[in-house]
Design a protein around this nucleic acid. Sequence first.
DNA 1: AAGGTGACCAAGG
DNA 2: TCCTTGGCCACCT
Length: 102
Amino acid sequence: MSSIFQSIHKLVAKIPPGRVATYGQIAAMLGVPGGARTVGWAMHGLPEGSEVPWHRVVGAGGLVRLPEFEGKAVQVMLLRQEDVEVDGRGRIDLERFQWTAE
DNA sequence: AAGGTGACCAAGG
DNA sequence: TCCTTGGCCACCT
């Protein structure tokens, strides 16, 4: 079924390891500026064991916008596994790790 | 069809 | 630096 939801998952799946994208960026790439909330919502609705690398999607400014109880620690861990530097606050240097589409 | 909700964003106190 | 406020969009009931 083609929904913005599917499009988001597909695009996120294209983010290469060691890179991150912001919610707003994803939304903009899909032609839905201002639809950052929708992207976040799509992430939240992901089933477990999904192919989608949801952990590569962060908030504006490279800040992890994920409540602890939703798996923030997991996201940070996965990112670090991909050589992405994340500080204790969950901040990432977009200048170096932000994904720029082809 | 209408309203509520959310892993957002930017600005203001 | 933290919390609140207003605005944005798509999905669910």
